[in-house]
């Protein structure tokens, strides 16, 4: 049984008097217990909205969420707000992009870690603080006793993200959703945080949904990768498969856009033309068609299905023929 089974999830934003915008368009994917799944795509492809929809954190007004989010066979979208609140932080943890603004600036770190323990595990303040000390220690924050009493602005960026990881994992959730957890950090710290995440997730058997635009993160961490474009999954593959043999032209383009040390020095970096737009809806063909190098006549017309559950393309990059 899958831990998380997202079925046909759609999110449509609409404000009065404006055209509805489909941010997430029938996304389905599953996460097995202990597995690490990547959601990859460029800005605006619906990664973050997907994660917020799973957690039920989208604003109450101005959007419609359809589909099913089955967490251990319970549809999170059908839960009453209070029931969902009981699960958030306890069963499902979440880490956000910007570690400074995700911490409350006027509350000492210790109390912020303790809060979630008091909330979900019924600990007293004293017990929770003692436990918080151990948690900070576990995420590699030196001198946790002192840090407990400090405020977020007194910590470095890396330490703040470590603290957020400690908070998210405090109640030993079975699923952790990390929404671009390393984007705001510099490269050396990124590597540390990713290693730490990997370690903690492996040791505790927590499943991880990694949302990122950074293919390097995916390469190092994810078992399965879902590539999102304009609100739809366009390709799904195991990590090795995806890197060795991308089939969708978009995935291929993304991979080629990564600078490589072993490339020709004079060569220009590949880029995908244009940017994500909702001008071509999926109902009238492939939304990627205007930017695609491999576009053919069949690409325009009707929605391209997810072939074999893994690839949404009428003219995919051919498989390399083994010599």
């Amino acid at each position: 049984m899958a831990l998380l089974d997202v079925r046909d999830l759609s999110v449509v934003f609409q404000r009065r008097g404006t055209r509805p915008v489909t941010a997430v368009d029938g996304v389905s994917f599953t996460v097995e217990p202990g597995q690490t799944v990547g959601l990859v795509g460029e800005s605006g492809c619906g990664k973050s909205v997907t994660s917020l929809a799973i957690m039920g954190l989208l604003p109450r007004r101005g959007n419609t969420v359809a589909g099913e989010v089955l967490f251990e066979n319970t549809d999170l979208l059908k839960l009453r707000p209070a029931e969902l609140r009981d699960r958030r932080g306890r069963d499902i943890g979440m880490i956000f992009q910007d570690p400074l603004s995700s911490l409350n600036p006027v509350i000492p770190l210790g109390l912020q870690v303790a809060e979630v323990l008091e909330r979900h595990q019924g600990r007293t303040r004293r017990e929770a603080l003692r436990e918080a000390r151990g948690l900070l220690d576990a995420v590699g924050i030196p001198d946790p006793e002192r840090r407990l009493k400090e405020f977020p602005h007194q910590l470095s960026g890396g330490m703040r993200q470590r603290a957020l990881i400690a908070i998210a994992l405090a109640c030993k959730p079975r699923l952790l959703i990390a929404d671009e957890p390393t984007t705001a950090l510099d490269v050396t710290i990124q590597a540390q945080i990713l290693t730490l995440l990997k370690e903690l997730v492996d040791n505790s058997g927590t499943a991880l949904v990694m949302i990122t635009h950074d293919l390097g993160v995916v390469a190092g961490l994810c078992d399965t990768v879902n590539v999102l474009y304009a609100g739809k999954v366009v390709e799904r593959a195991g990590r090795h498969h995806l890197f060795a043999e991308p089939r969708h032209p978009y995935t291929d383009g993304l991979l080629q856009s990564v600078p490589r040390l072993d490339a020709d020095r004079g060569g220009r970096l590949h880029q995908i033309r244009g940017s994500v737009s909702d001008n071509i809806p999926w109902s009238e063909g492939c939304a990627f068609a205007p930017r695609c190098d491999r576009v053919i006549d069949d690409c325009i017309g009707e929605t391209v299905p997810l072939l074999g559950g893994a690839l949404r393309c009428t003219n995919p990059v051919p498989k390399e023929v083994p010599v």
Partner: peptide, 24 residues
């Protein structure tokens, strides 16, 4: 963001208002 983060942790509404929003 920190209020969103608090909501993601399942903090109760009155705690969010009184502990996270009001003091700030």
């Amino acid at each position: 963001d920190h209020v969103l983060a608090a909501r993601a942790l399942g903090v109760k509404r009155h705690d969010i208002v009184l502990r996270h929003m009001l003091p700030n």
